[in-house]
């Protein structure tokens, strides 16, 4: 009976464990007494459960995921949303938070090429239904859009949002992360660039440990180099607040 260690890179068909002591979870399957990986990914062993987290891959729509999509088409009652995956999402007029009058032009609400934050309400073999009813679901304004692997999204967000809130805080940007790997960043142009660079770095090197510290250092360096002026301004503002107290 052998087992592989946690956080090891494995490939499809690789035997992760032999014997009946372990249970196959996502990214693995059991063939007789062996547990085998189906992805190029990182192993994750918690207790008796073996899991493989894929390192790359297209987004597969799941219910209750918040995604960022682009309006690519519309009929008189639906919008069609490209979510950067195999299926096209359908957003019905009934599913948006505003009241839409009968016979209204849907382009007045969301037009071709608009990006929206929406939630997947239902996934069937025939279609992926979306909804805009819920907190934070809206049309996106001007900003920078970048795309990363959807499998890296949990790493971008971090434990309890630690990574993303750090990037937001350090770069002073508003960021929305879609589960499909599309990310919207809004802030000063230089800050947007720094935030995007940090996110790309995480995307590239998600399998490494101690990445949070590295990203923190990167942000610190870039931001202070970028704008010493604004940093001073910020400090002043800080001081003013202090005085008010």
């Amino acid at each position: 009976m052998e087992t592989i260690e946690s956080k090891k890179i494995v490939v499809p068909g690789e035997v992760l464990a032999t014997g009946m002591d372990f249970l196959p979870s996502s990214g693995t399957f059991r063939d007789k007494d062996k547990i085998i990986s189906i992805y190029v990914g990182l192993t994750n062993i918690s207790g008796r459960v073996i899991r493989v987290i894929p390192l790359r891959g297209r987004y597969i729509p799941k219910r209750d995921d918040t995604v960022i999509g682009r309006i690519i088409d519309m009929t008189f009652s639906n919008w069609f949303i490209d979510m950067n995956c195999a299926n096209i999402g359908v957003l019905s007029v009934r599913e948006i938070s505003e009241f839409v009058e009968r016979g209204a032009d849907l382009a007045d609400y969301f037009s071709y090429g608009d990006y929206i934050v929406c939630k997947i309400s239902k996934v069937t073999r025939a279609s992926v239904d979306l909804t805009m009813r819920g907190p934070g679901l809206r049309k996106l304004g001007p900003g920078k859009l970048i795309t990363i692997d959807s499998s890296k999204v949990p790493r971008i967000i971090g434990k309890q949002g630690s990574m993303i809130s750090m990037i937001k805080e350090k770069t002073n940007c508003r960021i929305v992360v879609g589960q499909n790997g599309t990310i919207w960043i809004q802030g000063a142009p230089e800050d947007e660039m720094v935030a995007a660079e940090a996110i790309y770095k995480i995307n590239q090197e998600s399998h490494r440990e101690g990445l949070t510290e590295e990203i923190a250092a990167l942000l610190e360096k870039k931001i202070s180099k970028n704008k010493p002026m604004q940093r001073e301004g910020e400090e002043q503002r800080g001081r003013e607040n202090h005085e008010e107290e």
Partner: peptide
Amino acid sequence: LADAGIPMKDL
């Protein structure tokens, strides 16, 4: 296929 992150039984 494996590099594209597509689930595979084996290579």
